[in-house]
Amino acid sequence: MATPLLSRARVQNALPVMALVVLTVIVGTIEPTFLAPANLLVVTADTMTLFLMASGVTFVIMLGCIDLSIQAVASMTSCIVAAMLAQYGFVAVPVAVLAGALSGLLSGYVYVVLRIPSFIATLAVSGVMTTVAYIASDTRSVPIPAEARDAWLFWATGRSLGVPHEIVVGLVVLVVLGGVLALTPFGRYVRAIGSQEQAVHASGIAVGRVKILAFALSGTMAGIAGVVMGARLGSGSPTLANEFLLPAIACVIVGGTAITGGVGSIWKTFIGALTIAVVRIGMTFLGVSVFAQQIVFGLILVAAVALTMDRSKVAVVK
């Protein structure tokens, strides 16, 4: 039995890529300089921090859960790295990322062990992390000295052979996390749990451990995103990553990962992140204010969820 050319699954798979191409062409028509290679490199580099955040949360969404703490975590790690870098050097980077991982672990623990729904658990952890950020930054924006940045954050903000390092970091994450999701037992379990958790449990898999790991990974990636964001902006701030939560989740969903869990990939999230970036730039060209842009992201999120959600799995939407 051949799959029909326009089966639902195929359309769902092809749609995100088609949307990206069409949107790129539209924006390129409005503003031809957009398609200049140098500009495309800059746009892609700008998108990578968003992709870093979205790549981690993809695992959580594939479980059928949500992580609302990522923007608070990213802000917090930007503060930690900014506050520590001049004095302690590169050690500040692993410390900041570790703080992100611990935050994710905490979310996972609250969700799995205390059995609190993930959106509440991560919302609560989000509040805690914002406070940590205020403490680390003494409630101010913390500048990163240029020499310290050039010495320790060149891996994130430099350029090699004309290619911004953000893109390299993004591609490494794409390959590594893509591989983790597609080729490791952990990734397989994440997909299986998102599809039918009870059967995975009954098959003898430590479901709770897999879930906690997924949240830790989400926190880790948000932590890395915060460090890269701080490096790019030259400062850390408790509100640095505000307004990133909605677009990050939109990236995952626009790419074709289902909010209901079980279906998705890191590659899809990568496509989703580029799509969101093109939309953002297109709106800027059209003169849509930064604040009004959130309306558009909200609409895109709703439309994408409507398209990708597996309604057979949730009889009642809550």
């Binding site: 490791t184 299986a192 599809s195």
Partner: peptide
């Protein structure tokens, strides 16, 4: 609900309880 994971393939369901045996250096 407890026997099968509908979203996984036939092969993936079959190896679900013994995935470790099909894993080398962390990869399936």
């Amino acid at each position: 609900t407890e026997g099968l994971v509908a979203g996984l393939s036939v092969a993936e369901n079959m190896t679900l309880a013994a995935l470790g045996r099909f894993t080398a250096r962390g990869l399936i």
